[in-house]
Structures are given as C-alpha cells and as structure tokens.
Design a protein around this nucleic acid. Sequence first.
DNA 1: CTGACTGCAAACGTTTTGCACGGTA
DNA 2: TACCGTGCAAAACGTTTGCAGTCAG
Lengths: 133, 133
Amino acid sequence: MKDFTNILRTHNLKATPQRLAILEIIFFHRHINIDKLYDEVKQKFDSISLATIYKNINAMTKNMLLQEIKLPNEKSVYEMIKEEHSHLLCNKCGEVIDIQVETKDITKDIEKKYDFTISQSDVVLSGTCKKCH
Amino acid sequence: MKDFTNILRTHNLKATPQRLAILEIIFFHRHINIDKLYDEVKQKFDSISLATIYKNINAMTKNMLLQEIKLPNEKSVYEMIKEEHSHLLCNKCGEVIDIQVETKDITKDIEKKYDFTISQSDVVLSGTCKKCH
DNA sequence: CTGACTGCAAACGTTTTGCACGGTA
DNA sequence: TACCGTGCAAAACGTTTGCAGTCAG
C-alpha cells in the first residue's frame, strides 16, 4: 500500500483520516465516481459527509493529486494522476480500463496541419469488454 | 441552408419554429453550449423558455440528430451528428475545431490487445490555437 | 496553539417535471 | 381534431458555501 500520508503532505494537504480513506478507495478502484466513492467511504467512516467528499476531491484535483475523467453517457470518474494515458469504457458493465496509446505521431501531425499546440489528449474508446461479450 | 424542417420530420420530431431556430444556430456555430444557445435563440425568439431548450436538446439527442461533446474544464457543447471525428479545444479562446484523425489502425490494435470491441472513439486534444499563440 | 479540516444545514445553479394552453400535421 | 410541443412555475438534483466545532502539525 502506498504512503498516502506522505503523498498528501507533499501536495500541501493535511493527512486526515477522511482523506486517507478517500485515497485508499480511489487507489483500490483506480477509477470511481462521486456516488460510489461516498458509499464506500461511509462504510469505513460512517460520519463522513458528502460535502467533505466534494471539498476533498476538489482540493486534491486542484493540488494535482487527482484528475477528473469525463465519460460519454456516464458520470465522471476520478483517478490518481500518473503518466498520460487513454481509457477504455465498457458500455455494459461500466468498467474503465487504462490503456497506453501511442499518440505522439498523430498529435505531431495535427499540430502541424492546424497550427495548434497540443498540451493534453483526452481519449475514451467505448464499447464492450471481454467479460461482457 | 439545410432543410431543417425535413431533417426534424425524418427524426420523428415536429418542425416547430423553436426547433428550427435551435437547429439553425447549432448549424451556424457547429458547436455551442446550452447557455450560449439559449442567449442566441432568445434574440430570434424572445418568448422561448430554457425548459424548451432543454426538452428539445434532449429530444434531438435521443433521436440521433444531436450529440453532446464533453470537454475537459468546459461545459459540454452540442453539435449535429455527422461522420465520426475528433475535436481540438483551445484553452484560451474556447474554440472547438472538428478534425479528422485516422484512428482505425490504433483501435484495431487496442481491440486485439485488450479483447475489446470498440464502437465509439471520443478524442479531445486541448491546447492553444493559432489565433491565441 | 493555530490554521486547516469536518459535518451540518442552507444556498446555489442547473436540469427536469407537471400542467394548462397552443400549434403542427 | 388529436397529439405533440411550449412556457411557466415548481420541484428535483448535484454541488458549493458558511459556520461552529475539532484536529493535525
């Protein structure tokens, strides 16, 4: 298990039990939406309020610890920030899978063609995963 | 100008003046969010209510005439459905540009590698456009 | 010890709904 | 004419805020 206490402190956030629970659950699920996160944190931490979830998700997002992933036809999910990657979304079971897509060549072409400087690539490929076939 | 009356009817929607105004504005802007759409429709159609905008956007989306595009750090925009394409988003001026990206080879690889059937690709490349450099 | 964090309740902005009226086909 | 669509107001929904009390550092 990662040292979330230290991660929080290096991001200028105090390591409260609520925050540790939030991070553990996000780390375990890798991608989770607000509602499921609230349900799961409440199991470990009955007194937590939804407002605390929101305040912390916002603080951690602002401090570059978490990232919101917007999905077509689904609620946004949050994940810990890591190297840039893309996502597979199964429309049947809702699972989100991290994938590595080589976009360098493509973005270079686009930058040249449209005279545009690309700083971020958001890619979601949706369909059916192997379990749901 | 396109024959929006006919387009609406072929999508099982009655061609009301409100809907024609909505479609004309979306067609003209190519991408527009709810608030701007409401502002612009009101200029041509002072009596229109926001509820009507929402009801129609939802009806047209359900009936495959419009499509919601979720953007990072921005409100969703709506566009008329056409061939699959990707989007460039300028973080400075907010402009959205349609681009054609060749994703066939990539998605084929991903499908094989992850045993996943891809039916839709949502790609948003964000950065700075030529006007904002 | 002090500023940051929590939990509650209230407020807020956005989207949806119910209903009476009006317009399209 | 029949049904669908509109506009209004109210309701529902998700998220944010203010505040008093608590806790991490």
